[in-house]
C-alpha cells in the first residue's frame, strides 16, 4: 500500500455510528496486513475513543460531530479522534488496566474501563484538550511488518 495516506470519517454523536468507524478501522487494519489480533485491538481502542468523544466530549448532542482521521505513514497508523466539546482540562491516562475486584463489581457496572483499555490496546496514545474540543491520538507502529 502507498504510504502517507489519510482516511477521514465524520459521524454525528449517535452511538450507532460508532459501529461505522469501527468497521472502517477493521478495513484499514486489513489493508495494512495487520494480524487478526492487532485488528481487534485497533477496533476496540477506536471504539472506546469514539464512544468517549460522543458521550463525554459532545455530551450525546447529535448535531455535534466526531471527526476520525486514519493517517498512515511508513512507520505507523495514527488515528485522531476529535470531538466538538468544551474540553476536559488536563487528562492523565491510567497507567494500568482497570480491573474488576470484589469491591468494585457494582461500581464497574457503570463503566470506567474505556481509557485504560485504549492504552492497553495501542502502542502509544495521547490526549490534547482545549475549550474547542478534545483530540485522542492513537498510534500503532508497523514494526515487524514488511514495508
Amino acid at each position: 500500500m502507498q504510504d502517507n495516506q489519510h482516511v477521514e470519517v465524520n459521524i454525528p454523536s449517535n452511538p450507532i455510528f460508532e459501529r461505522v468507524v469501527r468497521a472502517s478501522a477493521a478495513e484499514i487494519g486489513e489493508a495494512l496486513d495487520f494480524p487478526e489480533d492487532r485488528i481487534e485491538d485497533l477496533k476496540l481502542a477506536v471504539s472506546e475513543a469514539v464512544t468517549n468523544a460522543i458521550e463525554h466530549g459532545n455530551q450525546n448532542m447529535i448535531h455535534k460531530l466526531v471527526e476520525i482521521v486514519f493517517a498512515l505513514d511508513q512507520e505507523k497508523l495514527e488515528v485522531r479522534i476529535t470531538d466538538q466539546g468544551s474540553g476536559i482540562g488536563e487528562m492523565i491516562l491510567p497507567s494500568e488496566v482497570v480491573m474488576i475486584t470484589e469491591q468494585t463489581l457494582d461500581e464497574r457496572t457503570g463503566g470506567g474501563f474505556g481509557l485504560s483499555l485504549i492504552k492497553a490496546m495501542v502502542d502509544d496514545c495521547e490526549v490534547q484538550s482545549s475549550n474547542r474540543g478534545t483530540i485522542i491520538i492513537l498510534r500503532l507502529y508497523r514494526k515487524g511488518q514488511e514495508q
Partner: peptide
C-alpha cells in the same frame, strides 16, 4: 465478534445479579 467497555459493563450486571 465485538465487545467493548459498554458491553463489559452490561455483562457485569449479570455477574452482580448471579452473585
Amino acid at each position: 465478534s465485538f465487545i467493548n467497555s459498554a458491553g463489559i459493563s452490561v455483562l457485569l450486571k449479570f455477574v452482580v445479579k448471579a452473585r
